[in-house]
Write a protein that binds this DNA or RNA. Structure first.
Length: 517
DNA sequence: GTAGGGTTAG
């Protein structure tokens, strides 16, 4: 729940402190430190900046430290606009002078934003207020420019740094690699004078992310020292390419060399098992977690397990793991709901979705996509319609093209063509070809020529996208009266789509080779 | 406080 390096308070303790602050009766001298503790802790919770905001807004005159905690929180939460809003408030309304910490957090918030406009503005403020001398701030600037793809600016700062340190070099190496310029990254790596383990790992990661595993392995073998991250970088590199056997070999090698795999190792391997349908290997990894006396399953590992079982079609075990998890989040629920929906257990899927709402887990657009898919497959029209409106009205989620195609498909199958058309007419954006095609197919099935003709007209007029060939085909079939042709083609598309999503063909029956622990 | 691995759902 709490990020590395932050104050270690349980969520319950936090709420208690907050309660005391609200109720009052605390001596003024103790008030400020308590507020600071609470805020710095609360702002480091995963994804709960809403709560931090409440605490922050309840503080009469927040000081520099408190503003910084908020900027840091928003930076971690990936909310640059909010981070800047706090910055503006502290400099304008509160008339506080930002310090080096402020800029480090602010620069982290805008690292990676497309273009470096926001970052350049911070750069200006850094220069104006004389913080360019600060090594942390300068490196944060270099990192920001490198992450934004402005390697020129990053290199200028690196040059100005004089005795440049390895942190700045590593940041620029990552920047080159992120733009796909592995050669430039390697050149810098070779030129770097004081390489440390992170620097080596950065270069390893550059090769691994680009699938150059031979080079990654070669560098790995030459590295003067290794840590868990080095091992994970290699394992993840293989895993990301679906090279499960290679990943497992390195995994074995790692343990033989006396290293203990961590969560990242396990999650990488499980995700590879899920993507390659290697159910038995996934089971063995799961089993080993128990053998290694790690019966506690964190939410991330739990989610990876649930997802692996669900994707491999073992819904029974997916639900079993789900039931043993202490904490669940929207990812856990979506894995189960989606897994059930796509493996023909629609009623169960809907049941889980309803349970999720009862448990006050806020569904997102993926949750609705999964459950609408379930309703569509099982013909649960009433549930489907309710969920569709719930999504818009209760949760404020604007349906996207996929949601529409689910609901139109569902109504179409049930013969409720007019209802489907009404929903399409109320779409905020133009219905996509997929949606019109779905309606067309349903019109054919239920013999609704009026709407069918309309759908055909629409399809013929939207041949500008990649589905143009197919659209034209539908049009030809439809216009020549061969309704059957439209439906046949649509069905074959559906079949291809479903096969790809379920991945049945790839699910193995034997482990891909995992040595005994 | 600056640089590295994993994040699972369609």
């Amino acid at each position: 729940m709490i990020r590395k390096g932050s104050a270690r308070l349980s969520p319950r303790a936090v709420r208690q402190i907050h309660g005391h602050l609200i109720v009052g009766g605390i001596a003024a001298a103790r008030l400020q430190p308590l507020r600071e503790l609470l805020l710095s802790c609360v702002a480091s919770f995963h994804g709960s900046m809403g709560y931090a905001r409440k605490v922050f807004d309840g503080i009469p005159r927040p000081d520099l430290f408190m503003h910084n905690a908020m900027v840091r929180g928003y930076a971690h939460a990936g909310a640059p606009a909010d981070a800047f809003a706090v910055y503006r408030r502290m400099t304008e309304a509160s008339r506080l002078r930002p310090d080096a910490f402020t800029f480090c957090y602010l620069l982290r918030a805008c690292a990676g934003l497309p273009g470096s406009l926001a970052g350049r503005q911070v750069h200006g403020a850094v220069v104006k207020l004389g913080f360019l001398k600060d090594a942390y701030v300068r490196n944060a600037l270099i990192n920001m420019f490198a992450k934004c793809g402005d390697l020129r600016a990053a290199c200028v700062l690196l040059g100005e740094a004089g005795e440049a340190d390895v942190v700045a070099w590593s940041a620029v190496i990552v920047g080159h690699a992120a733009r796909g310029d592995i050669a430039a990254a390697r050149k810098m790596f070779d030129e770097c004078q004081h390489k440390d383990i992170v620097c080596w790992n950065v270069m390893l990661g550059a090769y691994a992310k680009h699938g150059e595993m031979e080079k990654a392995r070669e560098l790995f073998d030459r590295a003067p020292e290794k840590d868990v991250v080095s091992w994970n970088t290699i394992i993840t590199g293989y895993a990301a390419q679906g090279m499960l056997k290679h990943a497992l070999e390195v995994f074995d090698e790692m343990r033989i060399a006396g290293w203990t795999p961590d969560e990242a190792t396990i999650v990488s391997l499980l995700s590879c098992c899920a993507n390659t349908g290697s159910l038995n290997t996934g089971r063995m990894i799961h089993h080993q977690l128990h053998l290694e006396r790690r019966p506690w399953i964190s939410i991330v590992v739990g989610n990876a397990l649930v997802s692996m079982y669900a994707k491999c079609g073992d819904l029974h075990t997916a639900v079993e793991v789900f039931n043993t998890m202490k904490d669940t989040d929207v990812w856990t629920w979506n894995s189960v709901i989606g897994g059930l929906a796509f493996h023909g257990q629609a009623e169960q899927s809907v049941r889980f979705f309803k349970k999720m709402l009862e448990k006050r887990i806020r569904p997102n657009e993926i949750s609705f996509l999964c459950v609408l898919g379930a309703c569509s497959h099982a013909g649960l029209v009433e549930d489907g319609q309710n969920f569709f409106y719930l999504m818009k009205d209760r949760y404020g989620i604007e349906p996207n093209a996929r949601h529409y195609s689910c609901i139109v498909d569902m109504l179409g199958r049930a013969g409720l063509l007019d209802e489907a058309y009404v929903i399409m007419s109320n779409m905020r954006c133009e219905p996509s070809a997929v949606v019109w095609r779905t309606l067309l197919g349903a019109c054919r099935t239920h013999g609704n020529m009026t709407l069918g003709k309309l759908a055909r007209e629409k399809l013929l007029n939207m041949n500008e996208d990649a589905s143009g060939d197919y659209v034209l085909l539908s049009g030809i079939y439809a216009s020549s009266g061969e309704w059957l042709g439209v439906e046949t083609e649509r069905r074959s598309m559906d079949r291809r789509g479903i096969r790809k999503a379920a991945g049945y063909a790839q699910i193995d029956r034997k482990p891909a080779g995992l040595s005994a622990p």
